[in-house]
Nucleic acid binder design. Structure first.
Lengths: 225, 225
DNA sequence: CCAGTGTGTTAATGATCGTTAACATCCTGA
DNA sequence: TCAGGATGTTAACGATCATTAACACACTGG
């Protein structure tokens, strides 16, 4: 108790001790275990529910039931319902940004960088469709600080796309590149609404459509054939 | 009162009299006036709010305040908050479907039909970005019958796309065409998140990207130039 | 002139839901 | 062995919010 008060009077961002409310260690009490921790179980279940019914459409009891505990027990793991959404969306945004950065710096020419970026986002969207849905839908259910953080990360990710695009097509205006990036992300993120093909075929289709949308070169609306 | 009871005992879908709760006449009491009726004012304001904060994030008082009246007065115009969302989303879905059908039947060859379809959706999305956002986000906040209706209309609209696509590229599997349609709709519907270019430039960009995504012809990921 | 309809207002109601309190249990480490 | 932390449980609290009640008032058509 006294320790908690001291922590709060110092600063929120500095962690004096490992606090189960804010750390993400796998395996609970087990030492080397990499089984998903309770927090991760909960976040994953919550993501599915949020994706299907929306953040405000899901009750705390629903989330509890989904992991076999009931209701208020969740407060042993998260400070609040808002905190769950916050961790979920900052998590996905960080993963996207870092993954995108990693794939583009390890690529030689701009075109393979773009290719890698598309492949990365396609794979991510297909693997985490629930997260994508929540990310698109419940961004504004976040508390102000979390929303700010997520927006920052998003901006950074789009920046990666913009830079890569402009290296592929020098002379493209920044606004144009940004709009193109948003459009292609929208294309790829459509996969949660679709889910008609098996993963391999879907991946290939999205990849090809994305590249064509970005690079196919003709000026008027329809091609010559 | 007695009349209402009689109406309910008969059937819900048959309208015995013109009921302000379910009709959409413009101009209120004015006869030929085509100024937006109160209902339309309210729906439009509600659409903006729903787009920004989500259906559950907007209170009935907020909607009232947005049109200058306060709270429960809305119940003079709509049966419930759910009914507002219902009318809003069935409305947009019907407009999309009918507009899409109209543009494709009036086109000669498949390619110009597709072109017209793309142009139609781009124009619609740019003109009604709030509605698009709500449509993508709050579909599952609908009551069951409304959701069913909207899903039906959506299915029909996608069907128009699928048919047009398959006439452009015979031999395309239906599943593939459907997935492509969803992807391109996702691309075009990205415009509410973007809004960086002026309408003309944005329209042209989305149009070109959509056509390239659908028609550009090469098999592997990157083009030959 | 005046019934009635359309349109508003504010106050109460009732349900839902996030959060906290109070209490129980199991497991671990000194 | 046993103190204490981690993790649950159920019951209460409090806020929010859609909906309804009760009332007011302009306007219009007979």
């Amino acid at each position: 108790m006294i320790v908690n008060i001291l922590m709060l009077t110092l600063t929120n961002t500095v962690r004096l001790v490992s606090d189960p409310m804010t750390t993400n260690n796998p395996g609970g009490t087990g030492r080397g275990s990499n089984a998903p921790s309770r927090r991760e179980q909960i976040l994953s279940a919550a993501a599915e529910l949020f994706a299907r019914y929306g953040f405000h459409g899901v009750g705390i009891d629903d989330i509890g039931a989904a992991v076999g505990i009931s209701g208020p027990a969740l407060y042993r793991h998260f400070r609040s319902k808002d905190a769950m959404l916050g961790e979920m969306l900052t998590g996905i945004s960080e993963r996207l940004l870092h993954g995108g950065r990693a794939r583009t710096v390890n690529a030689g020419d701009p075109l393979t960088a773009l290719e890698a970026l598309v492949a990365w986002h396609v794979e991510f969207a297909l693997t985490n469709s629930a997260l994508i849905t929540v990310h698109l839908r419940d961004l504004d259910s976040l508390t102000e600080p979390d929303r700010h953080r997520v927006r920052e990360l998003q901006r950074g990710y789009v920046e990666v796309w913009v830079d890569t695009l402009r290296r592929c097509r020098p002379g493209t205006a920044e606004h144009t590149a940004r709009a193109s990036a948003h459009a292609v992300l929208g294309l790829i993120n459509s996969t949660p609404h679709s889910a008609l093909l098996d993963t391999a075929r879907m991946s290939e289709l999205l990849h090809r459509m994305a590249m064509n949308a970005l690079l196919a070169d003709h000026e008027d609306g329809h091609g010559t054939r």
